[in-house]
Write a protein that binds this DNA or RNA. Structure first.
Lengths: 145, 145
DNA sequence: CTGCATGCAAATGTTTTGCAGTAAC
DNA sequence: GTTACTGCAAAACATTTGCATGCAG
């Protein structure tokens, strides 16, 4: 399988953009870290490696990563954008615990299929979707008792 | 069925809060207008009725409406909060056209059921969920050809 | 060399908050 | 009379942008 980094550099080349050390550092950090990082969190981690990188570049680069198809912007509802890896990791939805903030990536093929059908019934061609399930996880439920 | 306005005033009373003319005007506008209004749009419409109402009050009141259970905050991904009526209108998901911005409220009982199951499989008790389906509607698809 | 990319700071846009005055209960 | 509520302006955020400089191609 093609590597995410390669997808990114090819996208750069194809669009007459440039591969810079800043961009490489940001992509590296992004690909290394699992989960759903905010721009702020990415910025903090990149600064450890290279303190000279600016916030604006992180913002600009994350947009670029989304355009290139290796990142995806997600919103959990707290007003901050988060990014997750898209390339090489199959699509998934989110199951979020409202008590501890824990976030599970879940997938249900049956639901996926029904979403397509539902859209089709309304004359839509689906391009993507986001599904967030909010609830309370087992641990929080038992410890609250 | 109990009216949404009544649900709101009861919530106010139960929590030692106060019914003010500003709040009443904002609730009235919110309940009258269908769709998914931003705070800014609500503010504009309220100002027509009473120019003295401030933006901050609209923000504060919308939070209150959510707490009381008659409003729900939704995010379509453009960084602005929108509010839709919750009380008296059954739950629904969103089917959004990426070309014209049109927004259909949709519901599929089978998906709802599977979401519960999915959450349960992971030990979660579901409290709510948000599902956004993005695609292109029939009109946009044909006019683009 | 050319033009895209960078860091900085200023600007933007949305939402929140402090405060002194006002009004509901 | 309390206590919560209001409008205003300032503040707090996250994010974007203008600009002079730097550097990849």
């Amino acid at each position: 399988m093609k590597e995410a980094l390669q997808v990114f550099t090819e996208y750069i080349a194809k669009n007459g953009l440039k591969v810079t050390p800043q961009r490489l550092r940001i992509v590296e950090v992004f690909l290394r870290e699992a989960g759903h990082l905010t721009t702020e969190e990415l910025y903090e981690r990149v600064k450890v490696v290279d303190g000279s990188v600016g916030q604006a570049t992180v913002y600009r680069t994350m947009k670029l990563l989304c355009d290139s198809g290796i990142a995806k912007e997600v919103h959990f509802g707290d007003g901050v954008a988060r990014y997750e890896q898209k390339y090489g990791s199959e699509h998934h939805d989110h199951l979020i615990c409202e008590a501890c903030g824990r976030n599970l990536e879940v997938i249900d093929e049956e639901i996926e299929r029904l979403q397509e059908e539902l859209a089709e019934r309304h004359g839509f061609t689906l391009t993507s979707h986001r599904m967030y399930l909010y609830g309370v996880c087992e641990d929080c439920r038992t410890s609250k008792k």
